[in-house]
Amino acid sequence: MPLNFVRFKHARFTARFPESYRYSRSHYWMAPVEGEEGLWRVGFTKFATRMLGELVEANFKVNVGDPIFPGDSIGSVEGFKAASDVLCVMEGSFAGMNDALNVDACIVKSDPYEVGWLYAAKGQPEEDSLDVHGYVALLQETIQRMADAGYGHDEDGEKEY
């Protein structure tokens, strides 16, 4: 089933977000896997991939079947710009990482909403997850706060996100 997207633009940052996905305040998306009751895939939003840069490695410290809870650190990713914990945004059990990341972790940035997912979970999204419009509003506030604090400017004072 083809995805419908909501477009977002702020200064020089533009992104499209799948309309049917859920989103976390920590910049992850959650999408139910069609035909698999209670199974969800989780990945970074385009905003998160922009902050991390190209990923070079992803590791998970939980095993398939382990219980997981929102806010838990369940792994880590390393990118050219930063390293980061992978936070859980689901309640249920860990269903595995995306094996494609072992071959090419860069797919997280090049195709974040379909092929570049991070992990799967059996359960439900965190209670305060947002629909796409709530996430876009959160993103607008986040980028504005970053701009007000002086983040996102290059050497010439140009805004860059």
Rank of each mutant, 00 (worst) to 15 (best):
3 L>E: 15
63 N>H: 10
76 S>V: 02
95 A>V: 05
130 L>M: 15
139 L>N: 04
76 S>L: 06
31 A>E: 14
39 L>M: 10
116 G>R: 00
1 M>R: 13
21 Y>E: 10
118 L>Q: 04
120 A>W: 01
35 G>N: 00
13 F>P: 00
93 S>R: 13
97 M>Q: 09
33 V>E: 13
112 P>T: 08
144 Q>H: 11
121 A>H: 03
95 A>T: 06
139 L>K: 03
59 N>H: 14
106 C>G: 13
36 E>L: 07
92 G>M: 04
71 G>Y: 07
83 A>F: 01
147 A>E: 15
55 L>D: 00
33 V>D: 08
60 F>Y: 03
134 G>N: 10
157 G>P: 08
69 F>Y: 13
78 E>W: 00
138 L>R: 04
59 N>A: 14
140 Q>R: 14
137 A>L: 11
158 E>K: 13
71 G>L: 05
95 A>N: 09
111 D>W: 02
97 M>C: 02
116 G>A: 00
145 R>C: 03
95 A>K: 06
56 V>R: 14
8 F>N: 06
102 N>L: 13
157 G>A: 11
108 V>Y: 12
99 D>R: 04
78 E>Q: 12
21 Y>S: 11
143 I>Q: 03
85 D>G: 07
25 R>Y: 02
120 A>K: 12
16 R>E: 15
151 Y>D: 06
49 T>C: 11
148 D>N: 12
66 D>E: 10
11 A>K: 13
159 K>P: 10
97 M>A: 08
44 F>Y: 15
136 V>L: 04
40 W>F: 15
51 M>V: 15
116 G>L: 01
141 E>A: 14
147 A>D: 14
153 H>I: 07
100 A>L: 11
140 Q>N: 14
151 Y>R: 10
125 P>A: 09
130 L>P: 06
82 A>G: 08
76 S>W: 06
53 G>N: 10
51 M>K: 15
8 F>G: 05
58 A>F: 05
150 G>C: 09
129 S>W: 09
122 K>Y: 01
84 S>W: 06
52 L>Y: 06
120 A>S: 13
42 V>I: 13
39 L>R: 07
46 K>N: 10
44 F>T: 11
64 V>M: 12
55 L>T: 03
65 G>Y: 01
70 P>Q: 00
153 H>C: 08
47 F>T: 10
155 E>I: 12
23 Y>N: 03
7 R>E: 15
128 D>R: 10
12 R>M: 08
50 R>F: 01
132 V>W: 06
152 G>C: 01
35 G>S: 01
103 V>D: 14
132 V>S: 08
31 A>I: 07
70 P>D: 00
155 E>D: 14
68 I>F: 07
4 N>M: 10
119 Y>H: 04
38 G>Y: 05
81 K>A: 04
96 G>Y: 05
